[in-house]
């Protein structure tokens, strides 16, 4: 596994040179801050925006700390965050295929499996760092502005949510292996992910098998301390799909004719 460490080192260097190590966590930090802040200051924001028309009275619901964290995940991370993950990862395999670096790496002693694993672990680590940073910042702000949320719940929810992020990363990696343009990778990945995400609103038994449903599990864990029923099934299906995607990437790339330059 010596090659893997060389490849991972390269991923790290690339991520730091392209400032991905910086802007990924910064984006998620921003997403983590915005929900607690905007919920807390909503009355003032409404006031500043000109207030409500006369005679209109709205009763703002009593928001709890748990609600804020839950909407951070569903409204911020799962929308803008998802977009950022896909856009940030869309060219990871495509560019190597295009410029011939993949051929270079494979005409050395490294195997395709090591290459893909290197990419996957590298990107997964960047996303892990970013999502965790964003989540912890959200927790910090929520605890300060609202009330204290036990760290253990945040961490547990984060862990479950991260499995869904891992699914996003792996899907994008698979699309990168199958397709030859990064715009195509982004469009197809986003389509699939948003479709799954929208499908969570439909309810019904299918949700158990939907990786996007992990967000709801994560939210429930943060709110109540326990996941929704059938959590293990959803998690198992997601992990299984991740493994299948990795195998498919390998299967496809090993049969594809790579450009020589």
């Amino acid at each position: 596994m010596n090659h893997l460490s060389v490849l991972l080192k390269k991923e790290w260097l690339e991520a730091s040179r392209s400032y991905k190590l910086l802007w990924f966590p910064v984006v998620f930090m921003f997403l983590g801050i915005i929900q607690p802040l905007s919920s807390y200051y909503l009355p003032q924001i409404l006031e500043l925006a000109g207030g409500l028309p006369e005679g209109v009275n709205i009763a703002l619901p009593q928001i709890t700390a748990e609600d804020v964290l839950a909407s951070t995940v569903t409204n911020q991370f799962d929308q803008l965050g998802l977009l950022v993950i896909v856009i940030g990862m869309m060219s990871i395999v495509v560019s190597d295929k295009d410029n011939g670096m993949l051929t270079f790496i494979l005409t050395r002693n490294a195997s395709l499996g090591e290459y893909l694993l290197g990419k996957w672990i590298g990107q997964a680590a960047i996303v892990a760092g970013a999502v965790a940073t964003g989540m912890l910042i959200a927790g910090l702000y929520t605890s300060y502005l609202y009330s204290f949320v036990p760290l253990s719940r945040i961490v547990a929810g984060l862990g479950v949510y991260y499995t869904w992020c891992l699914f996003m990363v792996t899907l994008t990696l698979l699309m990168g292996s199958l397709l030859s343009r990064s715009s195509g990778v982004a469009v197809v990945s986003l389509f699939v992910l948003i479709f799954l995400k929208v499908a969570t609103a439909l309810g019904s038994g299918f949700q158990i098998m939907n990786p996007a449903h992990l967000t709801n599990h994560a939210v429930h864990i943060m709110i109540s301390g326990s996941a929704l029923p059938h959590f293990m099934t959803t998690a198992a299906v997601t992990l299984l799909l991740i493994v299948v995607f990795l195998i498919l990437s390998h299967f496809y790339l090993s049969r594809k004719e790579l450009p020589a330059s």
């Binding site: 260097l13 011939g100 670096m101 051929t103 330059s261």
Partner: peptide, 18 residues
Amino acid sequence: KRPFIGYLPQHPTFYSWM
């Protein structure tokens, strides 16, 4: 065949950030 061969492609691009 890799240990036997050194290969230079037509338009080597490499990683410009390295």
